[in-house]
Computed example of a mutant assay.
Amino acid sequence: MFTEIFNRTDAIVLTVVLFFSMLLISWFGNRVRKLVDQRLPVSDADGIKGLEGGMLGLLAFVLAITFGISANKYERNRDVIIAEANAIGTAVLRADLYPDTIRQAFRIDFEQYVEKRIRFYTTGADVQTIIQAKKEAAVISDRIWKRAAGASKLTGMLIPSNQMIPSLNEMIDITTSIEAVQKSRVPDIILLTLGILALTSSFLAGFEAKRMVLRDWLVMTGFCLLTCLVIYVILDLGRPRRGLIRSEIGEQAMIELRQMFHP
């Protein structure tokens, strides 16, 4: 249940909630420090400062790892879209090896297939539209495959078929890789750990300060803001269909396939 809500919530909403939570818990940490100083003897704070430094180092370490995972997913998503565009483009070119009647039928099917795949990538986070575009593209790719299989049985079609069928295999198989890449994400347990570390670091920072004056709050606000900004980028990179960071280069490569049919 938590995972479903977390994944459906926009990254900006999650990071805004985290930002104010970090500020609130730092204030709470400072209040706890005042209560402790009133009831217990004041001790050397070096231990707390060392713990705070270690916690900040651990937070930075987890941020770096998580950022690397999200950036890698973004790159793989872009690369696999470009690979699909290349596979489709190769198959379209190899349709030219067939006689004009077969070639024209192939090109009509390929044009329709390209439009469905463009719709699949550019529709955003509309789940129903994504599913519909995927189903329609699968129907067209099945028609293209049957056309190629039927043409391979005709006399004199050995060379065109030997060129076309491997390209179609790659074009169809790569859709499975695309789905796997787009469904992959940073494990929820890592993101949860990241949030806990950010909150704990804020608490310790507030606890370490004997009193929070304006300068301290400015520093704390900057720390919370920068931490949440990095976490937002991590979340946004892992959600290529939502947010500000899109795989524009990959999507553009797919859109440019239209020029093969309307030069």
Rank of each mutant, 00 (worst) to 15 (best):
T122E: 08
R242T: 09
I249P: 02
I130Q: 06
L226A: 13
S26H: 07
G156S: 00
L14F: 14
V42A: 15
D142I: 04
N169P: 05
F67A: 04
I165N: 03
D188G: 14
Q128L: 09
I140E: 02
G124S: 07
D188S: 13
L192T: 12
V92W: 00
E256A: 12
G243Q: 00
F61V: 02
E115A: 12
E52N: 14
A11N: 03
S43W: 12
S202R: 03
N162I: 10
V92F: 03
Y232P: 02
I140A: 01
I245K: 04
C228G: 03
I12A: 09
A180S: 10
F203P: 01
E115S: 12
G222V: 12
S201E: 07
W145D: 01
P187T: 04
I12R: 13
T90C: 05
I178F: 00
R39H: 15
K153G: 04
M22H: 02
T123L: 10
V114N: 01
R107T: 09
T66M: 04
A148Q: 00
I82S: 08
L204I: 07
A149R: 11
D44H: 05
A11T: 00
T101N: 09
D188L: 12
S152H: 02
V13Y: 09
D109V: 15
L257E: 03
M220Q: 11
P99Q: 06
T122H: 09
I131E: 15
E208Y: 07
R258C: 10
V139G: 11
T15V: 08
L199N: 05
I190H: 05
N162G: 03
A125G: 12
L197K: 06
E111R: 14
F2R: 14
R143L: 09
V16A: 13
Q38A: 15
A105L: 15
K34M: 14
I108L: 14
P41N: 10
A105E: 13
L58D: 01
G57R: 10
G238R: 00
Q132S: 06
